[in-house]
């Protein structure tokens, strides 16, 4: 239960680094660099560059993602940016605009 949860009313402007999974329900601007997964919930708004093993997006995301394992866009996801990951899942209903690079 050492997860990091960014609540709906929280705004972070800066850099998030660490070893714990991060769940974003609020707003993050800047950079996220983790050794664990990032979950962007439906209410989450992220304008950042993300570097993690895995990313799951249900909310709104603007920026570049570099994931060493996988990137998943849920049906509610709206994403604008580039994805660079060996495995990419995009669900029906997800909104995506950008480049995909699976050659990692």
């Amino acid at each position: 239960m050492a997860n990091t949860i960014i609540g709906t009313s929280i705004t972070i402007d800066g850099e998030i680094t660490g070893t714990d999974p991060v769940i974003v329900q609020g707003t993050v601007k800047g950079r996220i660099a983790l050794e664990d997964n990032v979950y962007i919930d439906e209410s989450g708004v992220v304008e950042a560059d993300i570097q993690t093993p895995s990313v799951e997006i249900s909310g709104q995301f603007t920026g570049d993602v570099t994931a060493s394992e996988r990137v998943e866009l849920k049906p509610e996801a709206r994403m604008s940016g580039n994805i660079r990951s060996p495995r990419i899942l995009i669900a029906d209903g997800a909104n995506f605009k950008g480049h995909i690079d699976m050659d990692v």
């Binding site: 050492a2 997860n3 990091t4 949860i5 960014i6 609540g7 709906t8 009313s9 929280i10 705004t11 972070i12 402007d13 800066g14 850099e15 998030i16 680094t17 660490g18 070893t19 714990d20 999974p21 991060v22 329900q25 609020g26 800047g30 983790l34 050794e35 664990d36």
Partner: peptide, 16 residues
């Protein structure tokens, strides 16, 4: 609800 996990470090501005 909001918590910054033990292994997480935030540099910047946090508002809420």
């Amino acid at each position: 609800v909001t918590q910054i996990g033990e292994g997480t470090r935030i540099a910047g501005h946090v508002a809420g």
